[in-house]
Design a protein around this nucleic acid. Structure first.
Length: 273
DNA sequence: AGCGGAACCTGTCGGC
DNA sequence: TGCCGACAGGTTCCGC
């Protein structure tokens, strides 16, 4: 589910509400599934702390805590953060409750139990965060950077776009959409891109991510905002999930292939290898 | 370096 | 109707 635009949407919505709220109680329902074993230490590191800011890095959510440390969350496939009034009992998919000082709940829910929560003193100490590459919405993401970084790899373009140590934040849906918008084949070797192609890829990446954030993300089946509303960008997808349907540009059928053990959607005519 | 495969866990959908 | 396999937006291991 959640890729950069969805995580950004959640971060923005939480950042509207959480700063200034403190954590009165933490209840863990599936410590094993959260990677917060021992749960008691996790709870203890959060009790009484105050949220000061929520932001995103790659697909990670970063909750700044006062006086110390950070809660780092990753939604993986089906994780969600939900703001809710008090509840009598947890839903079976609820993995953790953070009871706040205004009597509301921040709920971490995750059907498939892939999502993770971690508390760290410093972000530089988080092993996975340290490995993240360039954020495609950051100032450092330029055509020059893209051309240079791409020149160092012979991976297929789609693999490269989804490699979080290269670019941080793209997943299967947006990688496919960006490559279509840029007119580039997912199978093309990354270092074979011309300057003109790198420019198209850069522009498509920026444009689609910004548009998707404006639409508050893509809801295929699961994704929900913190108030349980869906995103709207699914209405603008042009190739993802469109196998056999006519290409919006040239009407030839959208193809589906297997790449990195996942589905890749593309137009063989508009994105020639 | 980078690939394929498997693993983590649960639910849904299509085919027979 | 019911069972079974394939598949799902992510990451991280391991072996080659």
């Amino acid at each position: 589910m959640p890729e950069l635009p969805e995580v950004e949407t959640i971060a923005r919505e939480l950042n509207e509400v959480l700063p200034g709220r403190s954590i009165r109680e933490v209840r863990i329902f599936r410590a094993d599934a959260l990677g917060v074993v021992p749960a008691e230490a996790f709870r203890g590191s959060l009790l009484g702390q105050c949220f000061t800011r929520v932001r995103r890095r790659g697909k990670y959510l970063l909750f700044h805590l006062h006086p110390r440390g950070f809660l780092v969350g990753h939604l993986r496939m089906t994780g969600k953060f939900i703001l809710s009034p008090r509840l009598a009992r947890p839903h079976p998919h609820h993995r953790a409750w953070f009871e706040l000082d205004d009597d509301t709940l921040l709920i971490f829910q995750d059907l498939r139990c892939f999502g993770t929560l971690t508390v760290v003193e410093r972000l530089s100490r988080h092993p996975s965060l340290r490995l993240l590459g360039m954020d495609p919405l950051s100032r450092g993401f330029t055509v020059d950077w893209l051309e240079r970084a791409a020149g160092e790899s012979r991976m297929p373009l789609k693999n490269w776009l989804m490699d979080q140590s290269k670019l941080a934040g793209l997943g299967n849906i947006y990688a496919a959409e960006i490559l279509f918008a840029a007119g580039l084949s997912p199978f093309r070797s990354t270092n074979a891109m011309t300057r003109a192609e790198a420019t198209r890829l850069h522009q498509a990446t920026r444009r689609l991510l910004r548009q998707a954030i404006k639409m508050r993300g893509t809801t295929i089946s699961d994704f929900r905002r913190v108030d349980d509303k869906t995103g709207e960008f699914q209405n603008f997808l042009r190739v993802y999930g469109k196998e056999g349907l006519p290409c919006p540009a040239c009407r030839s059928p959208i193809a589906r292939a297997r790449q990195q053990q996942r589905s890749t959607f593309y137009c063989p005519t508009c994105q020639p290898s």
